[in-house]
Structure formats: structure tokens, C-alpha cells
Computed example of a mutant assay.
Amino acid sequence: MSALHFNDWDDAPVRTTPPARPAPAQAGTAAPAPAAAPGPSLAPVNAADKRIVGGKTDINQLAPFKYPWAWEFFLKANRNHWTPLEISMAQDVHDYHHKLSGAERHVFENVLAYLTTSDILAMRNIGLAVMEKMSAPELQIYQARQVYEEALHTWTYQHCIESIGLDQQEIYNRYRVVPAIHGKIALANRRLERVMRPDFDLADRDNLHEFALSYFFFAAIFEGCWFYNGFTPIFALQRRGLMKGAAEQLQYIMRDEVLHCAFGIRVVRELLKEENLSLDPAALKTLWDEAEAAEAAYAAYILRDPILGYNADLHTRQFRFMANRRARQVGLAEPFPGAENVLPWLDEQANLRKEKNFFETRVTEYQTGGALAWE
């Protein structure tokens, strides 16, 4: 009787003796079909032939790279690995129920209500629209990581909501019933929905322009302004020693979003150059005006009563400053000339340094801490 053992990755038994030799074919039975002849060989991939969209090279062959910077984004993203369970929310529970004013609870709840929906929208846009249309695998592999990170961010908001004991149905429905929150989501859906279609033909130059404008909106405005600016009310609480656990989680999310924005802007710049394409100034102006109006309405709602050190006017002015920065990064004219950086401490939030573990019990070399360099 042959011996059996179990390997380390499967419960199925593995025999250590060779299988019995098959019996010879009996008369009248069909002989085994001959092995198929190998198919014709293919030409090797030339990195210079890769393109951001519409490339004809093998999408399954990662290297040689044409866009090595995309691979570097993937490596850097993996050094910012974390989960929400590693950050204690115990003090936040006490703060929310015993220290926050009514206005501060209103701010906290509605920021979470907006972010929970926004990150799911971001995940779907990358996974269903952008990633599917990229034809260089080094671009797709970073975007696969980005899809995971958007899911991780959604988990983080859910963890905050659940830890504090908020009414999940009520919080998650606010984007549908609160006009100022719904307005931002509706604008994003309108700007992104057409390019999500799998039959959206990028060989058509008008469609290609719409795709570039849509991706610019997503990377530079949705992630680069709305997200970057969107965490600020919670950071304003953190600066006063309140809701520090939630704020720390948002700092890690912000680091992800900084990379998402930088990657998207780099893709837009390369795409415009590669396709000899220019974004229409009139279309850009409409885009910026819509984005500013939606952000101002949102700020007026979540900060209808100012909180100490922060108000709706600061929020909207900071959006304009960030909008100018994102436009310059793409090589475009500033949409709001003269806008000032009214919250200079905001950029510091992306430069979190972690020298102890999250529960402050021992010194660690947690990868998220000192291993990352931020642009």
C-alpha cells in the first residue's frame, strides 16, 4: 500500500509512489489524440511601442518598461501599508460623546458621510473606466493597487463609523438626502459615467479628449482637491487634541491620495504629449467653476456653524489654492489667480512620522513610518 502525506498548501493527499501505468488500448478503441503542434512564435515586445491608451503590444508583458515611473509608484504605494484596526479609536469614542460640540459632531459625521461614498466611486472609476483602458501593464499594476487602497479607505471610514456607534444607515444615506453632499457625488458621476463604458472608443479624437478631461477631473480635482481638502475639518479637530485616532487614519489615507493624485497627473501629462492633445480651455473653465461651486456648497453645509480654528470660507479658499497647484502640475493656467495658502499646516499631514507602534507599547520599525519619501 502506498504512503500518503499532506503538503503545506492543500488538504488533498499526495501519493509518494508513482501512479500505475495506463493499460494499453484495447482493440476497437480510439487511440489517444496526438499532441497539438505549437503555435507560431510572436515578435518580442518593444518597449518603445507601448502607449498609455491604444497600444498594440502585449498587455500581459510587464517589462521592459516604457513608463518606469509607474512601477516606482507601485513600489512606493506598497511601503505605505496599513489597516484601520492598527489604530485605537478608544479616545475618539470618548471625545465624540463627551467633548465634541454639536457643530463639531455635525462636521465629523458629514465628512465621513461624504468620504464613504466618494471612495467607492473612486474604486469603481479606476477599476471599470481607467484601468481597463490603459494599454501598458506597468500603469495597470499601480492602478490595481489603487483599487485595493480605495477599498481599504472605505473600510477605514466604516471602522470609524462602527467604533463610534453612529447609525450606519443614516450616515450612508446622507449622500442621497443631503443636497450639498449629493451635489459633489452627482457632479463626479456625470463627469465620469460616459468613460466608464467598455465600448467608449478612444480612437475617436473627441472621445479621447473627453477621456483626458475626465481623468484630469478625477486625478486633479476629485482626488487632488476634494479629497486633499476634504480631510481638513478632521485635522482641525486633531490640532486641538480631538478625534486623534480618526485623524491619524485619515493621515494614512491622505498619503495614499497624494500618490493617486501625483500618478494621475503624470498620466495626464504623458497622455497629452503622446497623443498631441490639448485640453479645451472653455471646457476646463466650466470644469473648475462646477467643482468650486460644489465645494463651496458642501463647505457651507458641513461648516454652517464654524468650529474653533476652521470655517467654510477657509475651506473654500483652500480649495482654490489647491486647484491652482494641480493646474500648474499639469502645465495649465491657474483657474483662481491670486488664491493664497490659508492653511499652510495642511501639507504637514502627508508627512506623518511613526516612531512607535499604534498602541505606544514598544518602539517598532513600522514600514509606514520612515521608509517613505514624499514629493
Rank of each mutant, 00 (worst) to 15 (best):
3 A>E: 15
3 A>Q: 12
4 L>I: 12
6 F>Q: 10
6 F>E: 09
8 D>V: 06
14 V>N: 07
15 R>I: 05
20 A>V: 10
21 R>F: 10
23 A>M: 12
26 Q>Y: 09
28 G>Y: 07
31 A>G: 07
32 P>D: 05
35 A>R: 09
35 A>T: 13
36 A>W: 04
38 P>Y: 01
40 P>V: 08
40 P>K: 03
42 L>P: 04
43 A>K: 14
44 P>N: 01
44 P>C: 01
60 N>W: 12
61 Q>Y: 06
62 L>C: 03
63 A>S: 14
63 A>P: 00
68 P>K: 04
72 E>W: 05
83 T>M: 13
85 L>I: 02
88 S>H: 03
95 D>E: 08
102 G>E: 15
105 R>W: 05
109 E>L: 05
115 L>P: 04
117 T>C: 08
119 D>W: 04
131 M>D: 09
131 M>K: 13
138 E>F: 02
147 V>G: 03
150 E>Y: 06
151 A>K: 10
153 H>F: 14
153 H>L: 10
160 C>M: 15
175 Y>T: 06
177 V>S: 13
186 A>F: 12
187 L>D: 01
188 A>D: 03
189 N>M: 11
191 R>V: 07
193 E>A: 13
201 D>T: 00
204 D>P: 00
206 D>R: 11
208 L>R: 12
210 E>Y: 00
214 S>P: 11
214 S>G: 14
218 F>Q: 00
221 I>M: 03
227 F>H: 07
235 F>T: 04
241 G>E: 06
242 L>I: 09
249 Q>E: 12
268 V>G: 00
282 A>N: 07
289 D>Q: 14
297 A>M: 13
303 L>R: 01
303 L>E: 03
304 R>I: 04
304 R>L: 09
305 D>G: 01
305 D>T: 15
306 P>M: 05
311 N>G: 09
314 L>H: 10
319 F>I: 05
326 R>D: 01
329 Q>W: 10
333 A>S: 15
337 P>W: 01
352 L>S: 08
357 N>Q: 08
363 V>R: 12
366 Y>S: 07
371 A>D: 14
372 L>Q: 08
